[in-house]
């Protein structure tokens, strides 16, 4: 399958550069390798030299994870309002919409993965780094309610800088709201798998990211509660290399497994099959 048309993030350069022979390359921020864009896309936006996983948006995830034409988006039209008249928030929302080409920081829906039906959410690194406001919380809550009503498992990809301060205390309340919906879904005997991707921090780490029955992570993803800068200011020293990475969390017992992008579809399908209801 030709995935090129589906991956849109560096599209501007493609539009400017015209044809593929133009030899457009991207530099891996981790190892510095020059990656031809076409190759990078075919490789699911993973550096072929060092395995660095570039941040990608919901549509790219849907393309490599779900069975073709099975994704049905839910609540795709919910949009945030600037109900506190917070300075600059309106403009920030407009920029986020342009940068992500989405209406909000999470895309929710239902799809099949290797034939296994599931509800899915994908937070968006290009929409205010997946910051969680009332609409993000509402969409995720509705998804869990939807999945509970249909006895569907939920697979959630997290990316977040934390709660959205432009929505004040009501963004904090989303942590409690989503936790309630998760809890009901869980009490119904349904499976919830989280996949932590770069970066997952703050209020999202302290709520639905860490509540999965099984917690998966993408290699190298930054995952933590407090941001590195805040910790460094608190303890007044530099953090060691590799602090708050997926590998660090695995070592400390907070992640079940680290799965590279190329193996995620297969691994998720396997986990969905193992948690199928009525197998016992």
């Amino acid at each position: 399958m030709n995935l090129m048309g589906l991956f849109r993030s560096p599209q501007n350069e493609l539009e400017k550069g015209g044809s593929e022979e133009a030899g457009i390359t991207n530099t891996c921020p981790h190892c510095g390798a020059l990656l031809p864009l076409s190759e990078q896309w075919e490789n699911l936006n993973v550096c072929s030299a060092c395995g660095y996983h570039f941040r990608i948006g919901p549509r790219e995830r849907i393309a490599y994870l779900t069975d073709e034409n099975t994704f049905l988006e839910l609540d795709g039209n919910l949009k945030s309002k600037d109900f506190l008249n917070f300075p600059g928030y309106d403009q920030k929302l407009r920029n986020a919409k342009l940068a992500s080409r989405e209406k909000e920081g999470v895309v929710c829906g239902e799809a099949k993965i290797c034939g296994e039906p599931c509800a899915l959410f994908f937070m968006d690194p290009n929409f205010m780094i997946g910051s969680m406001g009332t609409v993000v919380g509402e969409k995720i809550t509705r998804l869990f309610e939807y999945a509970l009503a249909r006895s569907l498992p939920v697979v959630g990809f997290t990316v977040s800088g934390g709660a959205r301060m432009q929505e004040g205390i009501l963004s904090l309340m989303q942590m409690a709201k989503t936790s309630g919906a998760l809890r009901k879904h869980s009490d119904g005997g349904n499976f919830y798998l989280t996949v932590l991707t770069d970066p997952t921090t703050g209020g999202v780490t302290a709520s639905f990211a860490m509540d999965g029955d099984i917690i998966m992570a993408e290699p190298g993803a930054t995952v933590g509660f407090a941001g590195a800068r805040v910790i460094e200011q608190t303890i007044r020293k530099k953090l060691p290399q590799g602090f708050q990475t997926a590998e660090f969390l695995l070592e400390h017992g907070f992640v079940d497994l680290i799965v590279p992008r190329s193996e995620q579809k297969e691994t998720i399908a396997k986990l969905l099959r193992l948690h199928k209801r009525g197998n016992a």
Partner: peptide, 11 residues
């Protein structure tokens, strides 16, 4: 696991 501890309390 600060984040996990808080998440578990909410849940």
């Amino acid at each position: 696991g600060q984040g996990q501890a808080i998440a578990e309390n909410l849940f």
